[in-house]
Design a protein around this nucleic acid. Structure first.
Lengths: 112, 112
DNA sequence: TTATTATATTGCAATATTACGATTAAGTTG
DNA sequence: CAACTTAATCGTAATATTGCAATATAATAA
């Protein structure tokens, strides 16, 4: 079917999955890492930097914006993109908490 | 095309994306959270707990195993699944480092 | 107004993912 | 061995994703 049964999962599970899915493409990881390195840039910079077509980059930017990882501000004919600081912290906390839930005490033998 | 141009990205970017993609489905998040809660379980438990068909759960388990998030040990007719402690720590560190790369000093105004 | 610049949107083609019924494989029990 | 239990695999339908050419939109410059 290709369709996910979101209704049988919790809000939190769907939220983690939704954000992870967006991070789950190397182009979007590359965009994020570039944005962190240069603080802010426009779509054209990313097209040059990453080497995908402009519509493709634009599409990836939209998905990153949809989940709040980045934000964009119109500046004349171009759009200035950057990490969304507030949301970044929320998402970081969400994933920290997810990864911290597992405690591997003995780290070896207790598990199957 | 539906095909990702992995060759134009770094190993690290592809690795983060690959793992995030696997976490990017609520059923797999639910499986992980359940495994953390109960320590270990068999496929049938997850079929009951989550409410997807057995082949579907089995498929999700394979993907989780492929990226090393979980491991499975054959025990009689059933397979005992659990979080892979060593890999979990690596992956946790990978994502911590990814999220920690961004420092939002002033947290507001410096960005566009 | 007519370029020019920068980005978004549309419309595909190719491929991947999700889900499940049917079946297979492999160990266990009677 | 035959029946049973448990999980993996196969095949397939429905849908989603990726990438890009072509086009549209929107602001600025000449």
């Amino acid at each position: 079917m290709g369709i996910t049964k979101t209704e049988i999962f919790t809000e939190e599970q769907n939220q983690i999955a939704k954000i992870a899915k967006v991070i789950g493409h190397p182009a979007r990881v590359a965009i994020i890492e570039y944005l962190i390195r240069v603080d802010q840039c426009i779509c054209g910079d990313l097209v040059e930097e990453i080497g995908l077509a402009q519509p493709t980059i634009s599409q990836h930017l939209r998905e990153l914006k949809n989940v709040g990882l980045i934000k964009g501000n119109i500046e004349g004919t171009s759009v200035c993109y950057c990490i969304d600081p507030i949301n970044w912290n929320h998402i970081k906390a969400l994933f920290s908490s997810f990864f911290d839930t597992y405690k591997n005490e003995a780290c070896d033998e207790q598990c199957c």
